[in-house]
Write a protein that binds this DNA or RNA. Structure first.
Lengths: 336, 336
DNA sequence: GTGAAAGCGCTAACAC
DNA sequence: GTGTTAGCGCTTTCAC
């Protein structure tokens, strides 16, 4: 294994100079820096992660808690995770994978052993049992999602309440008077998963404000349930002409089901969704949607963490990304 | 931060005794062990990961390369990943998440910096560019999947060739004479992803052996393509009465499409799949399937790695899990 | 602008 | 069965 003393000898300088040349933490003459860099390259030097963590009290590792629980849509979660990894790498950090099941103990472990410098937590519930721990831990953390009480924490997410509102407003503007929300699986609401609840709030509030008739339907994510849901919606009195879908795997099957029941989208029924843009655009009938900007959220979560690790005093506690609605082929003015 | 000297003082022993009491690497009297454990508990001691890695030359971290490329089905990948994390934790290891894009550089980095003790690589291609590196690296690795040339490597996976064969044999036994394989997305074959190729081999070989007419259809994973695929199959001359699906997201939509075209499953058409059991069982018509035992593969990959880290000399180079076919409602004897 | 040297907290010889 | 001690490879004072 190549170590810093090897590089120092080769470059004809002291180990500390090598360290400083690499970290840039003190001025180094151009010539010395050049020689150090050459030696590093020639020997293929890589600082030992453990030694660096021990001496520098920074592991350059972020811990990421990924939810793999019932009802969450894995492909969306992985978009968040992938963008976190990419952003972390851009800051010379690696990412440690923790699962939900590890719970608070996992967070405490990686913090106490100094395995990770900071934590990113996904799938936040309105009253999340991990909040007290996150507040008391000596390591900075960022939540992707907003609990009910977020003081003392740093949170970022799409403004899901506003997302629900924007969808309803769009449908209302098109003349629709009866709207329905096809939501996430029931277990997600039972757990009080924050983002799902917020969509319902925004959806309902906007409908009330606009004087629309509205209903909410939590739905299992199996494609087979699409037809049942569609039939249930159409049986309502009055029947909705505008639908908001907040359930990725059900989106395409649901549109198929409507057409199978003889309804044209958007001729008879307008559909909007809250999901990543790529999903909405890939459906057979491209769907008007509010984007869940997973890549942006992941990247910005990392930026927030880096700012906190850098000792920035002005890190915003709450970052709510405003919804952005893209019109596609699935919505149209109400006919008749 | 609580350190080992704090524990030692509290327990009235030396630091090394604490270390040994915790690692079990040398005999400790019952009384001493008890005192050490009490001190650890009372102080909430956790060994510093970096210090431990530096002194012990073991980081207790495994690196896992997760594929997030086009055409792979993310929920299946996450089953592997989740089982790796769980198994790793059972061996007191954590898991570092690497993405495909990091490629060889990422593997080299975590190995050279001693961030990880060992590597698990998924999404193996027949001629994988990472193989030379994995062979030369000083850290043990396990591949989930088999490249064409696997000497000098440790690999584990379902025997996908046999899985393809078992599906065909099952259909042949039921009297079907014309069979079709609905495969993974084209890009997966273009990349020469090993498991997809092997299913085709097994499928074709078994069909030839049994004197069946067979055809292979790579298919995009969008549910919208199901109807097109179904129509294409039925237009063939002669039309297949047995179908093998090796494409998770298409399974349910495809069955819907068949019925939409007036074909009963299994009355007119028998369908088998190669996918995790949970997926096959959850379809509206539960599908006869060969299980992709993701949890078992992930767990055993970790066991293999632990054996190699432990210096075991008899670690098997190749572990091919035999296919296990479960009959469900989607297959029946050929009628007419 | 550079070097010398003191740790960081732990493990593992080497003692006894 | 237990203690003493020498590092592991790096960062960071402190000194010049």
């Amino acid at each position: 294994m190549v170590k810093i003393t090897d590089v120092a000898r080769r470059a004809g300088v002291s180990p500390s100079t090598v360290s400083y040349a690499l970290s840039g933490k003190r001025p180094i003459s151009a010539e010395t820096r050049r020689r150090v860099q050459a030696a590093v390259r020639e020997l293929g030097y890589r600082p030992h992660a453990g030694a660096r963590a021990l001496a520098g009290s920074r592991s350059n590792v972020l811990a990421l808690v990924v939810p793999l629980r019932a009802g969450i849509h894995v492909p969306v979660v992985m978009r968040f995770a992938a963008s976190v990894v990419t952003a972390a790498r851009a800051h010379d950090h690696d990412v440690l994978l923790l699962t939900q099941e590890e719970g608070e103990e996992g967070l405490r472990r990686v913090a106490d052993t100094a395995l990770a410098d900071a934590l990113i937590v996904m799938d936040v519930q309105l009253r999340d049992p991990r909040l007290p721990l996150l507040r008391e831990l000596d390591r900075p953390s960022v939540l992707i999602g907003f609990p009910r009480e977020s003081t003392g924490l740093t949170c970022i997410d799409l403004d899901f309440k506003a997302a629900g509102e924007v969808c309803v407003d769009h449908l209302a503007r098109l003349g629709h008077r009866v709207v329905a929300l096809v939501g996430s699986p029931p277990e997600v609401y039972v757990r009080q998963t924050a983002f799902a609840q917020r969509v319902v709030q925004g959806f309902t509030a906007a409908a009330d404000r606009a004087g629309l008739v509205s209903s909410v339907h939590p739905c299992a994510a199996a494609p087979g349930s699409a037809l049942a849901v569609a039939e249930r919606l159409l049986r309502e009195q009055p029947a909705p002409t505008g639908v908001v879908v907040h359930n990725e795997p059900l989106l395409e099957p649901l549109i198929d089901a409507f057409e199978q029941l003889g309804l044209r989208v958007p001729g008879d029924l307008s559909v909007t969704a809250i999901c990543p843009d790529e999903f909405a655009a890939a459906v057979r009938v491209p769907v008007t949607s509010v984007a869940v900007p997973a890549a942006e959220v992941g990247a910005r979560a990392v930026e927030l963490l880096m700012a906190k690790l850098g000792g920035a005093a002005d890190v915003p506690q709450a970052t709510l990304l405003p919804p952005r609605l893209t019109e596609r082929a699935s919505t149209a003015p109400r006919t008749a």
